[in-house]
Write a protein that binds this DNA or RNA. Structure first.
Lengths: 237, 237
DNA sequence: GCGCGTATATTGTGATCACATCGACGCCGC
DNA sequence: GCGGCGTCGATGTGATCACAATATACGCGC
């Protein structure tokens, strides 16, 4: 059984869109590790469709850099992240996501804020029980609940694209660090800033939240640069 | 004869990439007006390939929002720009492009700066002779010569995506305003800032350049909102 | 002459087939 | 036992076919 599966909700949407959603969801949740090879036919078989719609979904994900097609190899896989790349992703996230949050501030409804509290509660619970998947899900829900309020589709999609690229690596980060010493996240401050309707306070909270998360990832990237010198014939499993 | 054509340079590259490049080039140069419908089979016929690689290229361009697939209509076309969308594009461009320019500053070679002067000269010439196509080409060359030096592929691609979206509309802008009262562009200031190696000066010049161009586009968008009340049976051509 | 319904053509979508290329496995010879 | 080499399988890519849905054009009836 693969980590990807179709919605199977009413056959209305185009198949390649369902395939895209399934893959994007798996990627953004970190269910597909970096460097993991993916093949059209295998995916198609797992999803019970022909390779055709998978090709279109994959083409779209390649355009968003959520997948890559090795030039020499011509094999399809989840891209690895270099330090240079992470730095760019960090800068980009530090720009769009505070921007989205600031735009959302005057549009935040009582209901949305309630959902925010709810997501944050789920997040804390997952954190204390060591549920990585639950944590990532709750964190994603929290952030995108905000972004959806911003009424800025272009920025929203940009943020989604960025998350698509960092998603696979978040799982790696948690694998190294565990959910124990995670961040004191800034969700509480952010919620308070939303309630007082202060866009600038929201902005700084969001930026701090993004920055700290990405710096954690940066540390992991850097720490894995040298510490595995040779490791001949010492494969795991 | 269509405005799109293949490179026909050695059959090395994948066909769908050539198709993508051809379409992207036509779009970024504004050779395909907004709301212009395109069809897979027509494009395929014009390019002398099967509809298959065209589908992949188009799928990629849809992901980049350079094309859109009308939900109801299910017809493929170049997206129109709303004011809200232009404002987001402006904000995004005002962030990435100065960022790219600042990153490029310490990496600017003598040769690159020479090319910048060359492009700017071509730009001025095209401007005085009213050559819209030449102006857009020279302006594109100028900007992306800078961005290529930044060594920041993620930002570079983001800038490309944004240009892909504004491209079709630039031609519309020129159609309304002509090349006459174009901007005093900030290219000279920018080149000077590059030579003195001042990233902040480069940043402000680039931001001013982008901002003024986009404000021009914004004016056109706003001015076309109401001024054509009915205009029944007054089709051009 | 004009409106409306039908027929035709064209559209995007999905499936299937054909092919060149590359990796992996296994066999043979040393 | 082990290295080189050939075969087989899998991969992405492209072409062609089939199909449902829609826009467009034509013609009939009023």
């Amino acid at each position: 059984m693969s980590v990807v599966s179709l919605d199977t909700a009413g056959g209305d949407g185009k198949v390649h869109d369902q395939v895209y959603d399934a893959l994007a969801d798996a990627l953004i949740k970190g269910q597909i590790p970096p460097l993991n090879p993916v093949s059209l036919r295998t995916l198609a078989a797992n999803l019970g469709v022909s390779p055709m719609p998978v090709r279109e979904a994959v083409r779209r994900l390649i355009a968003e850099k959520a997948l890559e097609l090795q030039a020499s190899n011509k094999r399809l896989r989840v891209p690895d992240l270099t330090e240079k790349r992470v730095l760019q992703l960090m800068k980009a996230r530090e720009w769009v996501e505070p921007e989205l949050a600031a735009l959302a501030t005057p549009r935040m409804t009582k209901d949305a804020i309630r959902r925010l509290r709810d997501d944050d509660a789920k997040l804390m619970k997952a954190l204390s029980s060591g549920d990585v998947g639950g944590y990532m899900q709750a964190n994603q829900d929290f952030h995108f609940c905000i972004y959806a309020q911003a009424d800025a589709d272009l920025f929203y999609d940009l943020a989604r694209t960025l998350w698509l690229q960092v998603g696979p690596f978040m799982r790696v980060v948690f694998g190294r660090l565990g959910t124990v010493q995670l961040p004191k996240d800034h969700h509480q401050d952010m919620i308070a800033a939303f309630e007082s309707g202060d866009p600038e306070a929201v902005r700084v909270s969001m930026q701090a939240d993004v920055r700290e998360g990405m710096e954690m990832m940066l540390d992991v990237i850097r720490s894995r640069a040298e510490p595995e010198p040779k490791r001949r014939r010492a494969q795991s499993k």
